[in-house]
């Protein structure tokens, strides 16, 4: 591992641990709960940041995995009455769903643009379906799906094995923060393995990777599945945070928001989506406190401006500025997604 990367990891780990142990001491419980949701969003941002920035797969429907995770948790928690099994299932189900969807797309060799279309459409289907389950007949075991009303209450996280010991908001913060650090460093570790190297190679040059004998369909499906699982994890945490899930989790607006986090923070880095999620959600919260300027207006404007003016995003641009002061520029990330459009031209 190059020294610069190691230094960066140490810095991030130090900041992470400082937040993990320091924040509960300095802020009150209400603020801590508010900050917990930023942590959850950061995980969600990472899930897309991994798929898009490292796998080169632009998923317009990341919200599908998020919503699926949240609903899976809510529905199974109501049925089981404790949280450990439902929590694991909320990661597993979106992971399997993403694997199936990914396999369908990648083995069908559908181009990027059509992949965007399909992920978008799948999200729409889920949204419309969940939205239309308000009727009492839509029941899974003991849980009513509730349609547009959502599911208002279900058992929240407990100490594994002890359904009576529910986590308080401070403990929830610890859980969320530990998951964020796990996902962040776990993904970093993954990228240093052989698997990670092949994933980057595919992003950089699909045809070349394939001519070396790597089955890009398999790798892309795996990346997509991992991203889906992490999205599901974020969904499960989200459900626990508010003790409420609603079809809005599946909405296009939610998908757009995740994309904005990633593009603002920066593709091809892990820290970018985290920074993007926190920054954008902070701006959204500020905007929510006044009534003049509309939220969608600002988010949309940000997306347009970043695509036009700063397509690399904040963190890579910042990193470039810093390294230019020192050494050579960093690796590019998103152009390759477009170059890869026609991997095999025989069809």
């Amino acid at each position: 591992m190059p020294d610069s990367a190691r230094n960066r990891h140490i810095l991030v780990a130090a900041i992470g641990l400082l937040i993990l142990f320091g924040l509960p001491v300095v802020v009150d419980l209400v603020t801590l709960l508010e900050i917990s949701i930023y942590v959850v969003y950061a995980i969600l941002g990472l899930s897309l940041g991994f798929i898009w920035g490292y796998g080169g797969i632009l998923c317009f429907g990341q919200a599908a995995f998020f919503g699926l995770g949240a609903y899976t948790y809510a529905v199974t928690a109501i049925n089981v009455g404790e949280s450990t099994g439902p929590f694991l299932l909320a990661i597993l189900l979106p992971l399997v769903f993403a694997a199936l969807l990914g396999a369908m797309m990648f083995y069908g060799r559908i181009s990027d643009v059509y992949m965007g279309v399909i992920t978008l459409v799948v999200t729409l289907i889920l949204f419309k379906f969940i939205n239309s389950t308000a009727n009492e007949t839509w029941i899974v075991g003991k849980a009513r799906l509730g349609g547009f009303n959502g599911i208002p209450a279900f058992p929240t996280l407990n100490v594994p094995g002890d359904p009576g010991a529910l986590l308080d908001p401070e403990q929830f913060f610890y859980v969320a923060m530990v998951f964020l650090l796990l996902v962040y460093f776990g993904l970093h570790w993954l990228m240093t393995t052989r698997f990670g190297r092949v994933v980057v190679a595919i992003r950089e040059n699909e045809v070349r990777a394939e001519l070396l004998g790597y089955d890009i369909r398999l790798y892309k499906t795996a990346v997509f599945a991992i991203g889906g699982g992490i999205g599901g994890l974020a969904g499960a945490l989200f459900a626990n945070w508010g003790n409420f899930v609603s079809p809005g989790l599946f909405s296009l607006a939610q998908s757009a928001t995740i994309i904005i986090w990633v593009i603002v923070g920066g593709l091809g880095t892990m820290i970018g989506p985290v920074v993007g999620a926190v920054l954008i959600q902070y701006i959204t919260t500020l905007l929510g406190q006044q009534g003049v300027i509309n939220n969608a207006f600002v988010l949309g404007g940000i997306l347009v401006l970043f695509v036009l003016l700063l397509p690399k995003g904040l963190m890579p641009t910042l990193g470039q500025l810093l390294t230019r002061l020192r050494r050579a520029p960093r690796r590019p990330a998103r152009r390759s997604a477009e170059q890869a459009e026609g991997g095999r031209d025989g069809h």
């Binding site: 980057v200 040059n205 070349r208 394939e210 001519l211 004998g213 690796r331 590019p332 095999r344």
Partner: peptide
């Protein structure tokens, strides 16, 4: 697919230079 053929022990250099620029 090309990966199966390559995996059968075949080395290929395409006409246009093709590398992983970020590696």
């Amino acid at each position: 697919p090309p990966c199966r053929i390559a995996a059968a022990g075949i080395g290929v250099k395409t006409q246009t230079p093709s590398l992983f620029n970020g590696l």
